[in-house]
Nucleic acid binder design. Structure first.
Lengths: 235, 235
DNA sequence: CGGGAGATTGACTGATCTCAACCCGGGTGG
DNA sequence: CCACCCGGGTTGAGATCAGTCAATCTCCCG
């Protein structure tokens, strides 16, 4: 069960799943300790939380992690999800700061950890590695900027529609056209930045209007065009 | 008038003002074309706008630039400001994408431009340069995440108080304790993510309560503690 | 002096939040 | 086996923050 990830050479870091490690030379790869098996994390586990020290990259091999910040009144704001191939904790590692988010397992996960010193060396030695990381950071930055504009300017209804579209892109659909991610109403609300009750009401509105179908936590997209229109996005 | 910036050696890129260039070797510095004088941009000028191609770093030597995104209905959302020492356009350069924000001069500025190919080479060759850039990106990312949480969870009143505190930190006060940046009510609203009228009403509330004084666009902070309390921040 | 941009104020509206009650299904302990 | 409990989901009613619209004002400029 540890072998869900494809070892590369005799390494346990899954190169295919973490594009950044593609750029490492064999020498550099060899510096990653052999014993660094990806670790199993059960649903609900908190991998790290706001304010904790983390010094290294968490590389998700499998599973889904939700990354959120806790607001003043304790309400969580979901910033993003991490899944196979994504890295967590690089902001704190690069800045040598404490975590400013909490990472919690949504779907059972395998995650490997690469120590910060090692990563910082790679960054300094290997330009392509550095560039790739920079690209990841910049991509997130662009997404964050979009998010800011949306939350500041769009209605809850628009944002919820947008979140659904976004989830489809990120997690795609299963054979029955249901989103491949299971979120509570509260978690949806914490993405949209609204109250749970508002999400519930709007979801049933979307259902009424024939845009989606709902089976428990599973959401099926019936009329994507309409959702896109509601969300006011141009794609 | 071109000489407001301090040349380093016979270079016109002001090393002191742009920390990232500290890390360049003399050889690398020499690759930056001599004729690359910082250019003057008058208040109101748009340096680049959403969707335009930019391939390179704009390094602000002097002045203040507002960087914003335009929302669906044309309303602008101010993402950040750039001032002496800040870099603009690195997201687009690194990702080789078009700009996703607009940059407009708020206070007359001198800005030098370093071509993207050059920068990308520096990133690949010079680990410290790459790391510094990565740190800048990560810092912005952390700020963006805070911003998201605030906009999603706080009231307009809280956010406005927070913006004022934030402006004080970023631009500090002049001799009379006034913020060293001049923004229209609309621009304040576009930072907070609210309507102009709401900003006006809240500002006069803050004035009533003795937290601030207002002289035209100039804002003086009288009771910072109270503002911090209103903003619900812990510092 | 006319015009335009930005600032202000008041009145009104309505999207969303909050609070509270209630439902439902699964798991647990007696 | 059943009563109970608990987390999550739903629904309704009422309260309210904040957005919109419109009128007015104040500068400043040509």
């Amino acid at each position: 069960m540890m072998k869900n990830n494809i070892p590369s050479g005799n390494k346990t870091i899954d190169i295919d799943s973490s594009s950044i490690f593609r750029h490492l030379t064999p020498d550099e790869l060899a510096q990653i300790p052999i014993d660094q098996e990806p670790e199993f994390y059960k649903r609900g586990t908190i991998i790290y939380s706001e304010g904790s020290r983390i010094n290294g990259f968490y590389c998700v091999q499998k599973g889904i992690i939700k990354i959120y910040k806790t607001g003043f009144d304790g309400k969580e704001q979901i910033i993003r999800f991490a899944k196979r191939g994504d890295i967590m904790g690089f902001r704190s590692t690069v800045l040598k700061e404490r975590a400013c988010t909490t990472a919690q397992v949504l779907e059972d996960a395998y995650i490997s950890f690469v120590h910060g010193d090692l990563v910082l060396n790679f960054i300094k030695q290997n330009g392509n590695f550095a560039l790739e990381l920079l690209q990841i950071a910049c991509k997130e930055l662009g997404e964050a900027n979009d998010y800011i504009t949306d939350i500041a300017q769009k209605t809850v209804r628009e944002r919820l529609a947008e979140v659904i579209i976004h989830l489809k892109k990120e997690f795609s659909l299963d054979k029955d056209d249901y989103l491949q991610i299971s979120l509570t109403r509260e978690e949806l609300a914490n993405m949209v930045g609204t109250a749970t009750e508002s999400v519930i009401r709007l979801l049933s509105e979307f259902k009424q209007d024939g845009y989606i179908e709902i089976r428990g936590r599973r959401i099926k997209i019936i009329n994507e065009k309409a959702l896109i229109k509601v969300a006011n996005i141009n794609e």
